[in-house]
Simulated scan of single mutants.
Amino acid sequence: MASATTFYDFKPLDKKGAEVPLSDYKGKVVLIVNTASKCGFTPQFAGLEKLWKSISEKHPDQFVILGFPCNQFGGQDPGSDDQIQEFCQVNYGVTFPVLKKVDVNGDNASPLFEWLKAEKPGLLGLKRIKWNFEKFLVGKDGHVKNRWASTTKPESLEAAILEEIAK
């Protein structure tokens, strides 16, 4: 989807393979995270859920987190989409949307992640996702506002998210 100009131009798939038009999130601030269920950063699901609930409570219908499972880093998300969903809900009480497993790098990379990386390259201009739980913040205008490494704890993102909501 080389013609995509904003986040809203994409239609990734949910766990059942149905399109999820990101245009449904127009006017909201969106945090995109590539996730994995067997990673050292997996406990970040708890922080993401806490962040999701906290901001959604104060600012209903203005923020969403979208999780995209990925098995490209050390094979740390080998399960089926249904198994991944169950894992997230049972172990971390995840209620934010977790979509279909994707590749974030390489020839089969999701067009959404190709666009995210082009919008906000990482350190030294690198366009690769380095590991699980990298985070991209998309503003209400459909453009990437920030990108954080896997080591950045979800709880530390609240101020940046609230700042975008206030715009």
Rank of each mutant, 00 (worst) to 15 (best):
K101V: 13
E119T: 03
Y92A: 11
H143S: 03
F113G: 14
C88R: 11
N105Y: 12
A46W: 00
P111N: 14
N71T: 08
L116I: 04
G122I: 10
Q72M: 04
Y92R: 09
R128E: 14
F68K: 08
G75F: 02
F133Y: 11
Y92V: 11
L123V: 08
D103R: 07
E134Y: 11
L66G: 09
S54D: 15
Q44V: 00
S110C: 14
K127N: 12
G142D: 09
T95P: 03
L116A: 09
D103F: 13
P43L: 05
A46K: 04
Y92Q: 10
K58S: 14
A118M: 06
E49A: 01
F41N: 03
N132E: 05
I55R: 03
S110T: 08
S110K: 13
P121R: 06
K38R: 13
N108P: 12
K145S: 08
K50G: 05
K58T: 13
D107P: 07
P43V: 13
V90R: 06
L116F: 11
D107W: 02
V94F: 02
K120P: 09
F68V: 07
N132Y: 06
W52H: 15
E57V: 00
H59P: 01
Q83A: 09
F73Q: 13
F136A: 07
P97E: 14
G75L: 00
E119M: 09
Q83N: 04
S80E: 03
C39D: 15
W52M: 01
W52K: 01
